[in-house]
Structure formats: C-alpha cells, structure tokens
C-alpha cells in the first residue's frame, strides 16, 4: 500500500509541473485586455487497446486489459497506462501487471520520451505480490508504421526489467483490419516472487482481426502464442506451470 501512495504522490507533483504550459504570445504590440488570437487547448483521450477474454490451451481463462490515457498539449503530456488481468476461477482479485503514471515529451515527430512511476500488484487487494518501480520509455511509430513501446523499469528492490511491444495495422478494407502484435520481456536479474528470470523472459506473438463498427469501437477476435525461455521457464516449471501456451481471444478496442 505504501508504494502506491508514493506513486500517487510523485505523480501528482509531476502533473503539477507539466500543466501550466506557457500561453500563446506572439510578442506583438496588442493591448493587454485583448484575448490571444489563438487559444491553446489541452486535450486528452483514453484508448482501451485491448479489453479481451482469453481462452488459453494450458493456463486459466482470464479477462485482460491494456489501456492508456493521456492529457496535455502538443509536446508535454501526462500518461496513465495499465495492463493487467483477472484470472478467472483462481479466487483472487484482478492484478495490475503495470499501472504507470508518466510524463511524456515529444522528442521527434513520431517519438515520445516517457518517464514516471509504476505499480505492480493487486487491484485494491493484497491477493498479489506488489512492488513499485520507476519507468523510462520510448513510445512511437517506427518506419513502416510499426507502433512501438519500449520500456525500461527499475523496481524498488533495484531489479531491472524491460519490455518491447510492437503492433502493425494491415488494412483489409476500410473497416476490417488485421493486426499482428508482439511483446518481448527481458530482465536484468531474477525475481522469483514475480516469476521473472534473468535474461530473455518470454516472447508473445498475437494476431487479431478487428472490425471498426465506428472509429471508436472495434470488436475483434484473435489468437496468440507465448513461450517462456531460460531462467523464467525454469521458474515456471518448478512451480508446475506451463512454459508455452497458446489461446484465442475475443474483445473490443475502444477509443473514448
């Protein structure tokens, strides 16, 4: 619980730093009581990229989410990102794999440098082991339109981990699109509590077929395959869990 408070505290301080961005002033001689000719607006959006029900071959069924929201201007923004799942029938509450509050700055046309704090653990419960961490990330679009999110995390216990996510949109029709995605997890050191081994942890590859009912609502079906390797796989095997799994998902992508 402590960690969460710290997370919230630091983040609020960061938000305060970001929000009062400079107002429009072109420096010409206009009376002080005139309004600026162009008013700058802060905008925001919420993207629930994946809200899906997963049916794995080996593991248990789960409700999975992957969302991000931002608020801010052209260059400086505050992000809230979260991924997590609620494994069905395990008697435990949902778990945040990550809940991050980030300051984001546009550093190139297609790239944002992000930094902040994160939390991993139960969603309002003590059902799961928890830890806080600091995050540095690079989010953007690679040439050829591959949406990328590279994240480096340093936990409150000093453990380093990283993840790389990539997504690509292949447009079949104006509404139907096929989206391959991949996620690679790495760690600098073994953290048994979280099932994390040293080195390359796991690779997950997925593909989903979505139909954009509107620009904001895209239901989809998909399939994925994931494999743990090395140290991480050993930990899973020791715990009696599968190290390789595949499954199907059905869900919806929402832009709010």
């Amino acid at each position: 619980m402590n960690t969460r408070n710290v997370v919230i505290g630091i983040s609020s301080a960061m938000a305060l730093l970001v929000l009062p961005t400079a107002q429009a002033e072109d420096g010409y001689a206009a009376p002080a009581d005139w309004p600026p000719p162009m008013v700058k607006h802060h905008l925001g959006m919420v993207l629930i990229d994946r809200l899906e029900y997963a049916l794995p071959d080996e593991g248990q069924e789960a409700l999975v989410w992957d969302l991000q929201a931002w608020f801010g201007g052209d260059v400086n923004r505050v992000y809230l990102k979260s991924e997590g799942e609620n494994v069905q029938g395990d008697g435990e509450d949902a778990e945040f794999e990550s809940l991050e509050l980030l300051y984001s700055r546009l550093i190139a046309d297609f790239w944002e440098l992000q930094g902040g704090v994160g939390y991993q653990g139960g969603v309002f419960s003590d059902d799961h082991a928890e830890r806080g961490y600091g995050v540095v990330g690079l989010q953007g679009v690679m040439p050829y339109g591959i949406e990328t999110d590279v994240v480096l995390r340093l936990s409150d216990a000093g453990d380093v981990s990283a993840s790389i996510e990539g997504e690509y949109d292949l447009r079949l029709t104006q509404r139907l699109s096929l989206q391959p995605r991949t996620e690679i997890a790495l760690a600098g050191s073994e953290v048994e509590t979280f099932g994390v081994g040293e080195g390359l942890n796991s690779v997950r590859v997925g593909m989903r077929l979505g139909y954009a009912v509107t620009r904001r609502i895209t239901p989809y079906v998909g399939a994925y395959w994931e494999k743990q390797v090395g140290d991480t796989a050993d930990l899973s095997r020791a715990g009696g869990d599968a190290t390789e799994d595949r499954g199907v998902v059905a869900g919806v992508r929402l832009l709010l």
């Binding site: 002033e25 010409y28 000719p37 052209d74």
Partner: peptide
Amino acid sequence: NMERYIWSFDGKTFSEMTGP
C-alpha cells in the same frame, strides 16, 4: 506533424512563437 495534428510555420506553432 500529421501524427499529432500540429501545424506550424518554420516548425513552430503560434504558441511557441516569441515574436511577430
């Protein structure tokens, strides 16, 4: 910057300008 829908002169939006 089409991705962000930022439009400008010489890479600077009106609010980033320091003078006329």
